[in-house]
Design a protein around this nucleic acid. Structure first.
Lengths: 110, 110
DNA sequence: GGTTTATATGGCTAATACGCCATATAACCA
DNA sequence: TGGTTATATGGCGTATTAGCCATATAAACC
C-alpha cells in the first residue's frame, strides 16, 4: 500500500480526533441536526462548532443541507460510528492492564 | 455520555491520526516487529519512529517487549485494524461524490 | 574495563490546530 | 428597504505536534 493512501486515511481519522467532533458524530447517528442543535450538545462557541463541522465536511464525514436559515448536517457514511466499538476495546484493554490483568488475547466487541 | 469519555476516545483516535502511525499499525497486524523493522517500513528517522511508538504506547494501542538490544512492538488490541474498513467506506463515498454519484444510503463494508 | 548496537530522550524550530472575538453572508420578515 | 436570525469566515494568540540533530541509556560483546 502506498504512502499517500495512508495520508488519505490519516486525514479522515484526524477529522474525528477531537472530543467535540466525536460528540457531534455520536449525536448525528440519530439523524440530521442543525448547527444550533449541535452547538447545544457540545456547548462551545458558535464559530468553533462551525469550524469543527467544516473540518468534518472537508474530510467527507458529513454532508450539509440548507433549509431556510438553518443548515442541517448528517453523517455521509453512518457506519463510521462502528469505529467507536474498536476504540472502546482499546479502552477496556487499557483498564484491564492498569488493574494488573493483562489478557494474552484481548476480547474484541466486533 | 460524559465529555471526558469523548476525550478518552479522542486521545486514542488522535494516536492513530498520522500516516506513519497508520503504516505501523497496518504492519503490526502481521505480528510483532522490532523498531528497526518499523523504521524500514515508514522510512523516517529512528528518533521519529521511536516517538511515534511512544505516542501509540501511551494511548494503549501497542505493547512493547524487550529482547536483548531490540524492542518488539505488537498491537495490544489487534482488532483495531477493523477501523480501516470504516475509513475506506468514507473514502469510497467521497470518490463517488466527486464523480457525481451521490448514493442515498452509502454502502458499508462492515 | 571499553566498544558497538538498538532504542529512547531532550532540545530546537516550523507547522498545524484550537478557541474566542469580531465581522461577513444569506435567508427570512416587516 | 431595513432588521433579525442562523451560520460562516478572518484574524489573532496560544497550545500542540512533527521532524531532525545530538546525546543518553542499556544490553551485548571484546
Amino acid at each position: 500500500m502506498r504512502r499517500d493512501q495512508y495520508e488519505t486515511r490519516a486525514r479522515i481519522i484526524k477529522a474525528m480526533a477531537h472530543p467535540s467532533r466525536l460528540m457531534m458524530i455520536d449525536a448525528l447517528e440519530q439523524g440530521e441536526m442543525c448547527v444550533c442543535d449541535l452547538q447545544q450538545i457540545v456547548g462551545a462557541d458558535m464559530s468553533t462548532v462551525s469550524k469543527h463541522l467544516a473540518v468534518m465536511k472537508g474530510a467527507g464525514l458529513v454532508r450539509d443541507r440548507k433549509v431556510g436559515l438553518q443548515v442541517f448536517y448528517s453523517l455521509r457514511v453512518p457506519c463510521i460510528t462502528r469505529i467507536f466499538a474498536c476504540v472502546e476495546a482499546v479502552i477496556d484493554a487499557e483498564r484491564d492492564r492498569l488493574m494488573g490483568r493483562e489478557p494474552e488475547e484481548p476480547a474484541c466487541a466486533l
